[in-house]
C-alpha cells in the first residue's frame, strides 16, 4: 500500500505541477474567453455579444480619445450572444469586472434584438416557449454562469470550471496560432479562420480569405445558413432581459457614462431583426430617455462596412467603426 500511495502521490504531484506551468502560458490564443476573464478590474467597458467583442477595438478607440485629451482606457468585456445576453449572469460578471471606485468610466453597450431575447430549442415550440423563464436561460450553464471570479491571471476559476480542454491545449493553441500565421503569410492554405484575444479584450478573428470576392461569397454562404436554420424564428423577446438591460444601465451609470450602440450589420440580417422585433428602436429610444443615455443607431450605415458573415465586421471595418463610435462619443460630450 505504501508503495502504491507513494508512486501515485508522486505522479499526481507531477501532473499538478505540469498543470500549474501550463496555466501560466494561457493568453489570448487560449480561447475567446480566457484573456477577457484574466485582466484586472476595469474602469471603462465595452459590453454585449460577439458583434461588440469583434467589432470594437479598445486600443483604436483609446487612441482617438487620447488625441482629444482624454485618458480613457477601454476594455472589451463582450462575449457572445449565448454567453452574454442581458440577464442576471452577465450583470453579475459586469459588477465583478468594474473597479468599485470608478466614477468617470465609459460604458458602451451593444444592443440588438437578439440580446434582449431568449432562444427556444426550435421554431416549432416558439408559441409555448416562455422567454422569461430565468432558470432556462442558456448562459446559466455557460462560462459566466459557472464562475465566481472574473479577474486575476491566470484565472483558475475559469480554467477549472469552463475550459473544455486539457490544459495542454493551451500550449497546443499557441503552436496552432503560430502555424496559422505562417500558413496565412505563405498563402499555403485557403479558407479557415482563427481567433486571438488581445490584452485589451478585443477578439480578433483572423481569416485566411484575403480576396474580397471570396469574403463576399463566404459571407453569403453564412447568411444562407442563418436563413436555413431559421434562427430568427427561434428567438422571442424577453421582457425580463429588457429589465436586466435597464438594471445594467442603472448600475453602470453609478460608474460613468453609458452609451447604447446598435451595430451596422448586413441588410439581410437587418431584415431578420426587423421581422423579429419591429419595435426595437423604439424600445431603445425609450431607454435613452428614461436613463438619460445616448443611443447611437448605426443600422443605416450598413453599406459602409464589410462583414465576415453578415453579423461581424472584418478587421478593417472594425477599425473604421471603432473610430466612428469614439468620435461620436467625443462629439456628444462636447455638445
Amino acid at each position: 500500500m505504501k508503495k502504491f500511495l507513494l508512486k501515485s502521490g508522486v505522479l499526481v504531484f507531477i501532473i499538478l505541477m505540469l498543470h500549474f506551468l501550463l496555466a501560466q502560458l494561457a493568453d489570448g490564443s487560449t480561447d475567446p474567453y480566457f484573456e477577457k476573464l484574466s485582466s484586472n478590474r476595469q474602469e471603462s467597458l465595452i459590453l454585449g455579444g460577439s458583434r461588440a467583442s469583434e467589432g470594437l477595438i479598445p486600443s483604436v478607440m483609446d487612441s482617438v480619445f487620447t488625441a482629444n485629451g482624454s485618458t480613457t482606457k477601454l476594455f472589451n468585456f463582450a462575449f457572445t450572444n449565448s454567453d452574454s445576453p442581458y440577464g442576471a449572469v452577465y450583470l453579475n460578471a459586469i459588477k465583478n469586472k468594474i473597479k468599485s471606485r470608478s466614477g468617470n468610466g465609459i460604458f458602451i453597450l451593444s444592443v440588438h434584438p437578439w440580446n434582449i431575447s431568449s432562444l427556444a430549442k426550435d421554431s416549432s415550440e416558439l408559441d409555448s416557449f416562455d422567454p422569461n423563464d430565468e432558470s432556462k436561460f442558456r448562459e446559466n450553464k455557460l462560462a459566466l454562469g459557472k464562475m465566481h471570479f472574473f479577474n486575476g491571471s491566470p484565472n483558475y476559476d475559469y480554467l477549472l470550471s469552463s475550459y473544455d480542454y486539457g490544459w495542454g491545449n493551451i500550449l497546443l493553441k499557441k503552436l496552432e496560432n503560430g502555424m496559422f500565421e505562417y500558413l496565412a503569410k505563405s498563402s499555403k492554405l485557403k479558407g479557415g479562420a482563427w481567433a486571438y484575444v488581445h490584452e485589451d479584450g478585443w477578439l480578433e478573428v483572423k481569416s485566411m480569405l484575403s480576396d474580397s470576392t471570396e469574403i463576399a461569397e463566404s459571407m453569403m454562404k453564412k447568411i444562407e445558413a442563418y436563413k436555413k436554420r431559421e434562427i430568427n424564428h427561434c428567438y422571442k423577446y424577453s421582457s425580463l432581459r429588457y429589465d436586466y438591460l435597464k438594471k445594467t444601465i442603472r448600475k453602470l451609470k453609478e460608474h460613468g457614462k453609458v452609451y447604447l450602440v446598435r451595430f451596422p450589420v448586413h441588410e439581410e440580417i437587418i431584415s431578420f431583426e426587423k421581422e423579429m422585433m419591429p419595435e426595437f428602436d423604439q424600445l431603445m429610444e425609450e431607454l435613452s430617455v428614461e436613463f438619460d443615455v445616448d443611443y447611437f443607431n448605426f443600422v443605416s450605415d450598413s453599406k459602409k462596412y464589410n462583414y465576415s458573415d453578415g453579423n461581424h465586421f472584418i478587421k478593417s471595418s472594425a477599425v473604421k467603426f471603432s473610430i466612428e463610435v469614439a468620435n461620436r462619443i467625443i462629439d456628444n460630450n462636447e455638445r
Binding site: Y163, D164, Y165, G168, L172
Partner: peptide, 17 residues
C-alpha cells in the same frame, strides 16, 4: 507508456463536452 498517454490526455482531452 504511462507518460505518453498522460501527456496526450493533458494536451488533447476535451472535457465538459
Amino acid at each position: 507508456i504511462y507518460s505518453t498517454i498522460i501527456c496526450l490526455i493533458i494536451v488533447f482531452a476535451r472535457f465538459n463536452a
